[in-house]
Design a protein around this nucleic acid. Structure first.
Length: 269
DNA sequence: ATGGTCGCGCAGCGA
């Protein structure tokens, strides 16, 4: 096992459209584990061979033109499980995939977009986050290495939005959505990027329209939530804005975290 | 300026 593990997450907004950018990014960022969201493809269409040639095992949970999540790993990939555990499993909608990679329980999550506060989609988003918390409580040990990474469609606090006043109370920043993320943290997770970078204005998503990226009008909604045993060992965190530039970018940039796991075996149950 | 751009897939919806 490598002494350092680089864990990354990226909403690619169609893996078919984004595959050249994803291959390029993997070749220079060299993540050990990469969680993808919005692959927008079936399991049959997933390019396992492309990633195998780059040195990655992969698992995918997707059924067509919406949603779709994947985990790539070059440190082993065991026990891939799609969706929620138990009765809520059907409701996961190809928005959750778990696997064990290099001794870390990894989840790739794509939280529903709530559209407007008060809409049925907003209620469904809150219910989904509640199901995620129940799933985590039922299937994870907070003292073990756990990394829940993905597009949460929630900006955890006002530092994570370009204009807190303009968007206050809207979807992605409402108190109920933020409380749902806090409940995950209270279970035993840390927003590792925020733990390493306290300043405002560091975003992971920018609307394609109206030049929002160049106007720095974004939000940080792509999160890596890690149990304390991992978060305490994080040495580096970055949102790679360069991946949002250039030809045919996703509207999200990848976020990556480096964790020094040299003494992890002795420190965990 | 209350719009704009993408992806999917072929009209219009979702983000």
């Amino acid at each position: 096992m490598a002494p350092g593990m680089r864990i990354a997450t990226w909403n690619v907004n169609s893996l078919k459209a984004r595959l050249p950018r994803v291959e390029e990014w993997i070749s220079y960022a060299r993540p050990d584990v990469l969680c993808l969201q919005e692959t927008k493809m079936t399991d049959e269409a997933f390019p396992y061979m492309t990633f195998q040639l780059l040195g990655y095992d992969a698992a995918h949970n997707g059924d067509g033109r919406w949603n779709g999540v994947a985990i790539l790993s070059r440190v082993g990939l065991e026990d891939p499980v799609p969706g929620f555990r138990g009765a809520a499993g059907e409701k996961a909608e190809c928005r959750l995939l778990s696997a064990t990679c290099g001794g870390v329980l990894v989840m790739s999550v794509y939280v529903p977009n709530g559209r407007r506060v008060g809409s049925e989609h907003y209620a469904a988003k809150l219910a989904w986050l509640e199901d995620l918390l129940r799933h985590v409580e039922a299937s994870c040990d907070p003292d073990a290495p756990v990394a829940i990474c993905g597009d949460f469609n929630v900006a955890p606090d006002d530092r994570d939005v370009w204009d807190a006043a303009a968007v206050h109370g809207a979807t992605h920043v409402s108190e109920q959505e933020r409380a749902a993320v806090r409940a995950l943290l209270e279970w035993g997770l840390v927003d590792v990027f925020r733990a390493l970078h306290t300043e405002p204005g560091l975003y992971s998503w920018w609307d394609y329209r109206a030049g929002d990226f160049h106007r720095r009008k974004g939000m940080r909604i792509d999160l890596a939530l890690m149990s304390h045993v991992l978060a305490d060992r994080a040495t580096f965190a970055l949102i790679d804005r360069n991946a949002r530039k250039g030809k045919l970018p996703s509207d999200h940039a990848p976020a990556l975290i480096d964790v020094d796991i040299e003494d992890l075996k002795e420190a965990t149950p």
